[in-house]
Amino acid sequence: MRYRRADVKGGTYFFTVNLLERNRTLLVDHVDVLRKVMREVKGRHPFQIDAMVILPDHLHAMWTMPEGDADFPKRWMLIKAGFSRRISEGEPRSASRRAKGERGIWQRRYWEHLIRDERDFAEHADYIHYNPVKHGHACTIANWPYSTFHEYVRRGIYPAGWGKAVTQHPTGNAFGE
């Protein structure tokens, strides 16, 4: 059976992208490199970042694609390759990866979900922003610097103290761990 990705041009998608070795901290160790690569890819292949969090070993993002475009696989390939080229080698690589000229940084696949409606959007934004607390990287969401949570607070979408223990999203969606 062949896996088929969603293909809605101009759609909004939620992604989970993982490092191959989940015990590494490359994404926060090299967060400036990741941000630079994402800006470069966005410059050549536009998309809107609706929400995002970068954790040590994985990231979650929600993107809206341009009208008439659903080619997020190309964008992720460029981001992963660009990041990999800019950090020093040293990770173990399988024979398969060596044969294909691949680094051993990223998992080959990633998770994507097509956002269906405003409620689905709000629930995924909540999930993204609460993730550093869920994984024990921060006591409060406000303490995690690698997140669009801070922009959501500036824009008045979340109150500054949102996400402590079990809370209620401003749109009424229950959230918490």
Rank of each mutant, 00 (worst) to 15 (best):
N23F: 04
E102V: 06
W111N: 01
P73V: 13
E177M: 04
Y146K: 09
W111A: 02
V41L: 09
R75C: 01
W63S: 08
W111P: 00
A138V: 05
P159Q: 02
V53R: 07
R108F: 11
R5F: 08
W111H: 11
M38C: 07
R155N: 08
T171E: 13
S96I: 13
G10M: 10
W144Y: 02
P132L: 03
R24N: 08
W106S: 03
E151L: 13
Q168V: 12
V166Q: 02
G11E: 06
H58G: 01
W144R: 08
I157M: 07
R93C: 15
R93T: 15
K42M: 11
P159C: 06
I49Y: 03
V133L: 02
R85C: 05
Y158G: 00
W106Y: 11
A142M: 01
R103T: 13
V28C: 11
D126T: 00
E40V: 11
G156C: 14
D32M: 11
E21A: 09
K42E: 13
R86G: 05
V53H: 00
S147M: 02
R103N: 12
G176Q: 06
I141E: 00
D117P: 06
R22K: 15
I128F: 03
R119S: 07
R44N: 06
N18W: 09
Y13L: 02
D32Y: 10
Y127V: 01
P92E: 15
R2D: 07
Y127F: 05
Y158D: 02
V133N: 00
V37A: 07
G176S: 06
S88I: 12
H169I: 02
R103L: 13
H60Q: 07
I79Y: 01
T25K: 07
G156Y: 13
M1F: 09
R98C: 06
R2V: 09
F72R: 09
I87M: 14
H169E: 00
K36E: 15
V33T: 15
I49P: 02
D69S: 13
